[in-house]
């Protein structure tokens, strides 16, 4: 089911070619069509430990610091330490045998290729596959630097890439459950008098970390309550309500009806400052447009957030923001 007749025709042609070229042998069905070299190049991006798949390019720590500050730090912290619940990408060396090991690029990852490959294909979160190879080299160099693996003069490129050995390169063994566990646990199970006594050593209710049940979500909901639930996506960066502080995003108490960029002590992006200078007020219309696609609305904004596509959801979030703003108190 092709979108245009031309594409359909091409497919038929390809199939014909494949058959003519003997592409379909007796035990194949002759389905599919040959993948073009350009198509394979577009999707075959993975990079292997030996450097296979790396494109040409280079980037140094200093450049990487700039890219990281602009495109990664909102979530991963200025030095890769992680903001709130967002993952840390630096630190944790020497903790792997501790009770709660801190597993990061520096403390845990066995291969540099994994870092390059993952950042290249999957980060920044919400805008994957937008970094140039040079930026990826630079950011990888900066993350290595943040983990004390290279010094600040370092520049990473396709040639010196395989010269870097990650600290935990030898930290892995291939699954040995068959040898270390299975034989032991294949014994005939005990059926009676298996232990003398049984005592309770731990209770989940003592910790009390289980989410409260809210059967209410199924019923028609109060808009503000819905907005409050949706605000959980914002919470990783924003606080709201009494005593709210700036986190990686400015505090949002009183935001509806307030001038943009007006929170003391928060380092806004140039883009937001410019808009604020132009008199941007966060009324409901502006918020709705901003939250649809923050970085379309404010090109260059530091708010790395994909946006809320559902208009009803935006309405609910704004209703919730309003309930924490002066005019919202009259609800």
């Amino acid at each position: 089911m092709s979108k245009s007749p031309e594409v359909g025709l091409l497919q038929v042609l390809w199939l014909g070619l494949a058959l003519a070229a003997g592409g379909a042998s007796a035990d194949t069905l002759g389905l599919g069509r040959p993948a073009l070299a350009e198509e394979i190049a577009a999707w075959d991006l993975d990079v292997r430990p030996d450097g296979t798949g790396l494109p040409p390019g280079s980037g140094d720590v200093l450049t990487g610091e700039g890219v990281f500050a602009e495109k990664c730090a909102a979530c991963h912290g200025d030095f890769g330490e992680g903001v709130g619940n967002w993952p840390e990408v630096a630190g944790g060396q020497g903790t792997l045998d501790n009770k709660d090991p801190v597993k990061t690029v520096g403390s845990y990852w066995p291969y540099l290729s994994t870092l390059w490959d993952y950042v290249h294909r999957s980060m920044p979160y919400g805008a994957a596959q937008t970094l140039s190879p040079d930026d990826v080299y630079a950011v990888a160099a900066y993350i290595l630097y943040s983990n004390d693996i290279v010094d600040e003069e370092f520049s990473l490129n396709a040639t010196n890439f395989t010269g870097i050995t990650m600290p935990n390169a030898d930290g892995f063994v291939v699954d040995d459950r068959a040898a270390r566990e299975y034989d032991v646990w294949r014994a005939a199970p005990c059926m009676a008098e298996c232990k003398d006594s049984v005592t309770i050593t731990m209770r989940a209710t003592a910790l009390d970390v289980t989410p409260r049940d809210d059967v209410a979500t199924a019923a028609p909901v109060d808009l503000i309550a819905k907005g409050q639930r949706l605000f959980s996506t914002c919470k990783s960066c924003h606080e709201i309500g009494e005593g709210a502080k700036n986190r990686s995003g400015p505090m949002l108490t009183g935001i509806v009806g307030r001038a943009a960029g007006a929170v003391d002590g928060f380092r806004y992006s140039k883009a937001l400052k410019t808009a604020a200078g132009g008199g941007l007020i966060w009324n409901e219309t502006a918020l709705d447009a901003f939250l649809t696609q923050p970085r379309d609305y404010l090109n260059g904004s530091k708010m790395v957030f994909a946006g809320i596509t559902n208009p009803e959801d935006r309405k609910a979030v704004i209703a919730y923001l309003k309930s924490h703003s002066a005019q919202g108190d009259t609800r």
């Binding site: 993975d46 990079v47 292997r48 430990p49 597993k103 690029v105 845990y108 990852w109 066995p110 291969y111 290729s113 994994t114 490959d117 993952y118 999957s122 892995f172």
Partner: peptide, 8 residues
Amino acid sequence: VESREETS
């Protein structure tokens, strides 16, 4: 490949 999902 030793991707992120099979190492980290």
